[in-house]
Design a protein around this nucleic acid. Structure first.
Lengths: 209, 209
DNA sequence: TTTACTTTCAAACAGCTGTTTGATACGCTC
DNA sequence: GAGCGTATCAAACAGCTGTTTGAAAGTAAA
């Protein structure tokens, strides 16, 4: 019984891994059940047997552990808010541009933004929403209580916008600056720039930086 | 002869309009030739007859006149660079979020970023490249000669990133802040925030703002 | 071994895709 | 009106899609 279950669960796991790969590579529409099963060494019918449908497979393939861990780690770093913002931007850029396997999840999210499917609701609820909320609190610590909620929101958007730009525009950068490599050193430089730029931007709201 | 040609050209034009609509709505993969022809009141074979293929249709459907006009108008406004940056951000946000028909083009571009097809090369060459270059020169006027080319590039990215964020994240905003309406007033507020935030950010490089 | 079950598999299904075809209708010159 | 090139059309094509099916294989308790 345990043997059977683990065998079945192994197939399930292989399908999930393959699905994450293929969805990230080709998008939801572009990804085919056959390609997923091919990479998972499984039969075409396996997806429907184990998950019910291609839609349900995508829903189960989502995994935001990396993003959540990042926020938890940052909250534990009990330094002053400005330093924590620097730390967050740094970690966030590493997640977005680094070679972590989280980039697949980011790719799926990016594709959902340009072409939403029903799973976007779940992505917003589980990942993007908490992220915005987290950054909102952090920025609030920096700018103080006098700043309106609307302005605070716009500041958060300015920060996330700068970070996610580098992710979204990778295909463009490849063509515009083919010599540019997003290695560890470059990522750190970008993160530092965004932090400097943003803290100066925030100073417009909080008074002198 | 002229009658025939204009009739044929009318079909061509209708197909192009419909294509822009459908590509923007469903993406390149999601858009179907049949739907495009249905909206253009044309036969299914019309696309291949007039354009050769679905790919070629997309390539011809691209239109960056709005984006180009925006840069030309800004260059003519011979005010000081900071004011011109404010003006540009304002016009750019109106293009991105306003009710202009340019939003279809933006949608196509956004989809190409998340899921590039061969036409992305053309988009980068004709639209995004010139845009980056334009902003590069403008920012250079503000920060002066002492700033390195790499830092200048990152500043440009910070500005474009903030602007395009509001475009990319519309599906998210709809879910996260359903009460928020991107009416003219809100767009102006956003544009002013981005300008303030960015000019303060730039002051980090150019010395005191 | 028999029985009951889960899991895998090749094959087929119905539906949609971009594209092609050959016939038909149109507009124009002669 | 005859002839000619262009444009439109319904129909069919080949290929791919997600999904279903019913048989076969595997697993574990009786």
């Amino acid at each position: 019984m345990t043997e059977t279950r683990t065998a079945s669960e192994q197939t399930r796991a292989r399908l999930l891994d393959a699905a994450r790969e293929v969805f990230a590579e080709y998008g939801f529409q572009g990804a085919t059940v056959r390609e997923i099963c091919r990479r998972a060494d499984a039969n075409v019918a396996a997806v429907n047997y184990h998950f019910g449908s291609k839609d349900d497979l995508l829903a189960e393939a989502l995994n935001f552990s990396r993003l959540k861990a990042l926020q938890v780690a940052n909250a534990k770093a009990s330094k002053n808010p400005k330093t924590r913002l620097r730390l967050f931007i740094h970690d966030f850029m590493l997640t977005l541009l680094g070679e972590t396997n989280a980039s697949g999840q980011c790719q799926i999210m990016a594709r959902e933004l340009a072409d939403p499917t029903p799973v976007l609701d779940e992505i917003v609820r589980q990942a993007i929403g908490p992220l915005h909320e987290f950054l909102g609190k952090l920025v609030r610590e920096i700018v103080g209580d006098k700043v309106s909620e609307a302005d605070l929101l716009r500041c958060v958007h300015s920060i996330i916008g700068q970070c996610s730009f580098y992710y979204h525009s990778r295909p463009v950068m490849q063509r515009l600056h083919p010599e540019l490599r997003f290695d560890h050193k470059e990522i750190e430089a970008i993160a530092q720039h965004i932090a400097d730029f943003s803290l100066n931007g925030l100073s417009h709201y909080s008074g002198k930086s």
